[in-house]
């Protein structure tokens, strides 16, 4: 038997031992993952992430030249589009938002660590929120389009 051991397999076994020893999943990462079920969307519609300039090649290429343009993110739910620009001035983040169709609404920014921050969108659907630091956030929009439907919650993004 021993002469038949595939040398590739032997090397893989060694690598496997190495990663098990030096790079296990940190317990805190598992704990946080388990806790994330508490963020289930209970009463709201999902506004999906439609586009994110931080994921686009062109924006990336452009950003290399000089000042990075603000990151632009678009979420879309039935009957509501939410555009935000993320301005970073470490550690602070400022979100400039626009609801389409435009309407006043209450915007809640949920973070994992702190109580949500609230902001009001004006008649033109514009809002602005300042966050003390980065991390995962999602927006909860209440009362857009004249209170007709359920609240809308966006996908999580890390800002």
């Amino acid at each position: 038997m021993s002469e038949d051991i595939d040398p590739d397999e032997m090397l893989m076994v060694e690598l496997r031992g190495l990663f098990t020893d030096v790079d296990p999943v940190p317990p805190l990462v598992i704990e946080t993952a388990k806790a994330s079920l508490g963020w289930r969307r209970l009463d709201a519609d999902l506004a999906e992430l439609l586009s994110d300039s931080a994921l686009e090649e062109e924006a990336f290429a452009g950003a290399r030249g000089g000042d990075a343009p603000a990151r632009a993110v678009t979420f879309s739910a039935t009957g509501l589009t939410i555009d935000i620009e993320v301005l970073v001035d470490d550690p602070e983040r400022t979100l400039l938002g626009q609801l389409s169709p435009p309407s006043p609404a209450t915007i809640e920014i949920q973070t994992l660590a702190d109580a949500p921050r609230s902001s009001e969108a004006d008649r033109l659907g514009r809002f602005r929120v300042r966050l003390p630091g980065g991390g995962p956030i999602r927006l909860r929009v209440l009362g857009a389009n004249g209170q007709s439907g359920p609240p809308v919650e966006t996908s999580w993004i890390t800002v």
Partner: peptide, 18 residues
């Protein structure tokens, strides 16, 4: 790095929840 990998993991699990 581990701290960034932890952020990626967190965002990934939140995405699954939603």
């Amino acid at each position: 790095a581990p701290a960034e990998a932890a952020d990626v993991a967190q965002t990934t699990w939140l995405r699954l929840v939603e």
